[in-house]
């Protein structure tokens, strides 16, 4: 079946139009001369200029970036450890509770996660700011990382690790030299996922931020609540552009590495 039937063509066209038209409109109107986001008044990039002159937005972007880098890195370390424990840890006391705590945050409504962390921070008298947002983001994104990494660890051929141990590696060396390079793609995608989740989060950050720190989503939310504004369109366009470039690059990299692997396998098959 190489050609699409008309029904499939129509559903794909309408489906992708639905997914993409709102974003296309958003991008087009970021270049609008007028302050109105719905009436076209000529091409202009002035909203980008205004955005870059707005110190509040720049500060918020900086806070968001800091939080995202720290929390996703911490979450990747903790999440990879958690995945290793889940897949290789064997039996230990409280394993069920541990796996429950890994999966529960994935389905927990953000308002509840945010509320509970805020009450904890207030309970122990921790000053809220960038640090508490990092703690909160690390906690929920480490669970995503551990799901991504453990799905790779499950399919991993354990005899490779055993071979390294037999050949005189210490467990730490075996992990660093054998396991880590093999699970690296999953660890990297876990990090990217954690980074994106942190950049994106409004609700949990709003609860845990306190008055001293404002993240970009919080800033966007408070200005969007008052209505649409071309400055937000400009900001959205920049964010969409970054994500698009990132996703396309990532998919090209995986594509070429898959092709390389396939070629290597073919050559190995021919050689044998």
């Amino acid at each position: 079946m190489n050609r699409l039937s008309w029904f499939n063509t129509v559903s794909l066209t309408l489906g992708f139009a639905f997914l993409y038209i709102p974003m296309v409109i958003l991008i087009i109107f970021s270049f609008n001369e007028s302050k109105l986001v719905t009436v076209w008044a000529g091409f202009s990039t002035k909203w980008y200029g205004e955005l870059f002159r707005d110190q509040a937005f720049l500060n918020a972007a900086w806070v968001t970036l800091k939080v995202a880098v720290f929390s996703s890195t911490l979450a990747t370390v903790l999440g990879t450890m958690a995945a290793y424990v889940m897949v290789r840890g064997g039996r230990f006391a409280g394993r069920t509770l541990f796996s429950g705590m890994i999966y529960a945050p994935l389905v927990m409504p953000e308002v509840i996660t945010g509320l509970s962390l805020l009450l904890l921070f207030i309970g122990i008298g921790l000053d809220r700011g960038v640090f508490t947002i990092v703690l909160a983001h690390t906690t929920f994104s480490m669970c995503y990382v551990s799901v991504v990494v453990s799905s790779r660890l499950v399919t991993f051929d354990r005899s490779l690790e055993e071979a390294a141990l037999d050949l005189g590696c210490s467990p730490a060396e075996a992990f660093r030299l054998v396991t880590l390079p093999i699970i690296a793609p999953a660890v990297i995608s876990g990090w990217l996922l954690a980074f994106t989740l942190s950049l994106d989060d409004l609700v949990i950050a709003s609860f845990t931020a306190g008055p001293s720190a404002t993240t970009l989503p919080m800033k966007i939310f408070s200005s969007v609540r008052l209505g649409v504004s071309p400055k937000i369109n400009a900001l959205s366009t920049i964010m969409i552009a970054i994500v698009t470039v990132g996703v396309i690059t990532a998919s090209l990299i995986t594509k070429s590495s898959v092709a390389r692997q396939r070629r290597a396998e073919q050559e190995a098959a021919r050689a044998s």
Partner: peptide, 25 residues
Amino acid sequence: MLVILPFWTSFLIRVYSWMGILSQE
């Protein structure tokens, strides 16, 4: 990739994009 791309794009921005579409004008 076209289905996954919106998933990586900010949730808040995707919700916001509908405000300009659905408003009175």
